[in-house]
Measured scan of single mutants.
Amino acid sequence: HNLTITQGKLFFHYNPKLCLSEIHKMEEVSGTKGRQERNDIALKTNGDQASCENELLKFSYIRTSFDKILLRWEPYWPPDFRDLLGFMLFYKEAPYQNVTEFDGQDACGSNSWTVVDIDPPLRSNDPKSQNHPGWLMRGLKPWTQYAIFVKTLVTFSDERRTYGAKSDIIYVQTDATNPSVPLDPISVSNSSSQIILKWKPPSDPNGNITHYLVFWERQAEDSELFELDYCLKGLKLPSRTWSPPFESEDSQKHNQSEYEDSAGECCSCPKTDSQILKELEESSFRKTFEDYLHNVVFVPRKTSSGTGAEDPRPSRKRRSLGDVGNVTVAVPTVAAFPNTSSTSVPTSPEEHRPFEKVVNKESLVISGLRHFTGYRIELQACNQDTPEERCSVAAYVSARTMPEAKADDIVGPVTHEIFENNVVHLMWQEPKEPNGLIVLYEVSYRRYGDEELHLCVSRKHFALERGCRLRGLSPGNYSVRIRATSLAGNGSWTEPTYFYVTDYLDVPSNIA
């Protein structure tokens, strides 16, 4: 807008934040220059609390790290170098490059900038070799853009010569660093050979998330399962459950009422301010606690030095998902009996873990797994792929695949051998790939016309006998059925096997 004052003059007093240069501009645009008398524009009460600059400061050096910015700028000295009290560095987070010096300023003089007072450097006698002032900004957020400017702080001049310097606002972004852990990993099994893994992005990506790394490792069953005799009275049979499938998407929606109208769909109840505040506090606490764990609990591995020492970490090797089922080394339970199943799973520490690289999504279907087997899954978020990966501390989750139908069934015939004193040795093959492992066998036998009897055969007993022995049988026709019990439950009964026990007292003698 054009402003013209045809008559009258300007009068400025007691404006401590208004620089004289701005008042002189007002004289020019209003056409009143030359009308004012000496005392109409006070030299001592206008701009006496402001830094009124008329020179431009330029930054000469900028260096960044993930949490620091090192700045240096060209030296500046007023005509009387004693008038320079120091520099004021202003900075704040700036997602967009549209910041002005006066953003967030209120009537009390406060604003949204963080201000650092910096002492002037030592003055050199040689004007050509003056030290460049600077400042190291610490405690910054990774991968965050900051708006920065600097200006001088000078003393009051009796001659009211307006001098000083100020830089333009520059924008500097800190470097990326390792992201925080992925949030809320959930693993479920939808079949006997697959596990579905879902997660949420890290709360602090500290860069642009480029991919996720998912490692999985087959877990050995508890050692007590191999040692305890679950045929003993009072000892509860062990059981394991597989990871249940995901709930429906509708039930997972946030901010939804727990109660549904019987007449149909209901609208979600909005969260109160107290609920939102509580969630923010919980989120802040979780982030602080995660940072504490990362800094205190997890110790970084030592990389190899120039002395030739090897990095103890196993090298990563990509495998196809079809090879995942046989990740671990199978060892027989008892070496003397080769027909026992290889369900003991000690994992070799030198073995390469299978892994998958996930790009542009937060889910993965891990296939080719062994049925009813526990897996430990390790999830890392990465925001750099080359020249070397920059990934987060791992988040861990466990899951067990679903049982395989008929995996616990005894394959092959049940054979028998009759000894003296009416002892019958029953023999059968253990299931080759049971659900988890076989903890015991149930032997059901009966003599024709009598009630059915049951015998429990422990895992250890089966390994020693290759089956079991029935003792003290009365003469007669017998039928026997056997079924295995694994961590997933009972298998199917075998087809009945028949044998006849004679009275050993009636056996004919070869003595003449």
Rank of each mutant, 00 (worst) to 15 (best):
C231W: 03
E351Y: 15
E433C: 13
L487R: 13
L277V: 12
L280A: 15
S284V: 13
V480Y: 11
F337T: 13
T307C: 07
Q275S: 07
S203G: 10
A463P: 04
L487F: 10
R318M: 05
K236R: 07
G306A: 06
V359R: 08
F372K: 01
S223M: 14
C391T: 02
D311N: 12
N421T: 10
R400S: 09
L464K: 11
C391P: 02
V214T: 04
Y396A: 07
P434M: 04
Q380N: 13
V507N: 15
V331P: 15
T494F: 01
S458Q: 04
L232D: 14
T485C: 15
E362P: 05
V443A: 03
A263Y: 15
K357A: 12
V359S: 09
G207L: 02
M427V: 08
S283V: 05
G234F: 14
D409W: 06
E388D: 15
R286V: 11
P338E: 07
H425K: 09
V457R: 06
D409Q: 07
P270I: 10
F298M: 14
A335I: 14
D503A: 05
R316T: 09
F462C: 02
R471S: 05
V480M: 10
Y441M: 01
I209T: 14
D229G: 12
K302M: 11
K357N: 11
L280P: 15
P300W: 06
T288R: 06
S444G: 13
G306S: 08
L237Q: 06
V327A: 11
N206L: 09
R481A: 12
N383F: 05
H461K: 09
V423R: 13
P475F: 05
S223F: 02
G436T: 07
C382P: 01
G489T: 06
Q252C: 13
V397N: 13
P300D: 15
F226R: 13
V397R: 09
A405P: 06
D261M: 14
T343L: 07
G207H: 03
D273E: 11
P245V: 08
T373I: 08
S444P: 00
P332G: 09
I418F: 10
G306Y: 09
D503Y: 09
F337I: 08
N295G: 14
E388A: 07
E465C: 07
F355K: 14
D503V: 13
W216K: 11
K406M: 10
T494M: 04
S367Q: 11
Y292A: 08
D291T: 10
S363Q: 14
Q380A: 09
V365H: 04
T303V: 06
S283T: 07
C456K: 02
R318S: 11
E221N: 04
R466T: 05
I410S: 07
E362S: 09
P300K: 13
A395M: 09
E247I: 04
S239R: 10
R319I: 05
M402C: 15
P332I: 09
M427D: 03
T340A: 07
D261H: 11
R316Y: 02
D229F: 12
Y445F: 05
R466P: 05
T401H: 00
N490I: 02
P312S: 12
K357R: 08
H454F: 00
C231H: 03
E356Q: 10
Y212T: 13
R376F: 14
P312L: 14
V397M: 13
C456I: 02
